[in-house]
Amino acid sequence: MLAGAAAIFALVMVLLALPFLRRGKDAPEARGIKVWIIGLGLAFPMAVLAALLAYGLTVGERLLPRAEDGAIRVEAEGRQSGWTFRYADQPGRSTSGVLHIPAGRPVDVDITTGDVIHSFWVPRLAGKLDAIPGYVNTLRIEADAPGDYAGVSAEFSGIGYAGLTFTVTAHDEAGWQAFLGDDPQ
């Protein structure tokens, strides 16, 4: 996308510079309209955009959660004071500030809020999705490798917004079983 944008930008800059170098000849307006407006103004962006849109929609479709693949379900509740996470596999268990998931398996995060609008964003795992009062939004994430992934609230939520961060800890299979085995807090 960046390379394409840079190429289009370069093209426009060249077209912009050339008339300063060549002395204009009054071409008939009909020809100008054909070249500039119909060719470059209409056809060119339409072709580029159609390709880009098709690409964007397919990629977007791939990122969507599908019901049948047996994903782990967790719940993330945002508050101005911090994020709380609950686990479908272990009812009653909740953690604050750290979301535990197994690595290498898809996880569906049900995102809710306890007060104002927040947004759940773990840049390395997925795009962001908002937590909106009265709704449950589900985001599919998947960590390829065990480790800690930084997460933030990405919707302005007042005074403590800058500090509204959390961590996603992805466990290997043994670690995940150990986590599930822990007593509920």
Binding site: V12, L15, L16, L18, P19, F20, R23, G24, D26, A27, E29, G32, I33, V35, W36, I37, L40, G41, L42, F44, P45, M46, L49
Partner: peptide, 19 residues
């Protein structure tokens, strides 16, 4: 698209004249 039409109409105007 309509933004592109305007931009290129303006650049075409520059090509027609002596900026």
């Amino acid at each position: 698209v309509p933004t592109g039409v305007q931009i290129f109409a303006w650049i075409g105007t520059m090509w027609r004249g002596r900026p």
